[in-house]
């Protein structure tokens, strides 16, 4: 049952991700991204990370995607118009991507027999209490410094977005 669910949602995630790249309209892209996020949440849930699955839905599929859709709406972005791409990108892009993905899957495939199989629901370190404890002990500094990162991003948005004075 777990394996079947895994395959269903893994396929949905990959299909949505591919669709995201192919779509020309931003709203269609945003909806595909929600599909990716949602399926990933299910995969986390299958592994036993209930808290991470919930955060994935609330933060990514919820908050961030709402923001995306708002921005698309405010910019009134229409369908993307194809522009002249470089010859290299047109003829080599897809083959190189296929080679890259092929290499990655070969590497993963070759190590599979040596490592133990994934146990669905076997992950038990993702409860809110443990995540919170780690955030405030071991990962205290990265957690705090992230606020500087966000501050820089906000400052950048103000700089690039302000009206002429």
């Amino acid at each position: 049952m777990d394996a079947i669910l895994f395959f269903v949602f893994a396929v949905i995630a990959v299909a949505c991700a591919a669709n995201l790249v192919v779509q020309t309209h931003p709203i269609a892209g945003a909806l595909s991204l929600i599909g990716v996020m949602g399926s990933l949440a299910v995969l986390y849930l299958l592994l036993g990370g209930e808290f991470i699955a919930a955060v994935q839905v609330i933060v990514y599929a919820g908050a961030i995607m709402v923001l995306f859709v708002f921005v698309i709406m405010l910019l009134n972005a229409g369908a993307e118009r194809p522009v002249g791409r470089s010859v290299v990108a047109r003829y080599l892009g897809v083959p190189v991507l296929v080679i890259f993905l092929g290499l990655l899957s070969y590497v993963i495939q070759s190590m599979l027999p040596a490592s133990e199989a994934v146990r669905f629901g076997g992950f038990d370190g993702g409860a809110p209490a443990e995540v919170g404890r780690l955030l405030f002990t071991r990962y205290l500094l990265p957690f705090e410094v992230t606020s500087v990162l966000i501050l820089v991003a906000i400052l950048g948005a103000v700089v690039l977005g302000r009206k002429e004075l």
């Binding site: 990265p142 410094v145 992230t146 500087v148 990162l149 991003a153 950048g156 690039l160």
Partner: peptide, 24 residues
Amino acid sequence: ELIMIFIGLEISSIASYILAGYLR
């Protein structure tokens, strides 16, 4: 530590991207 490196790199990079385009 890699997470720390990543956050430092991002702070430095994002500020640099904006500085590069500061004269709008």
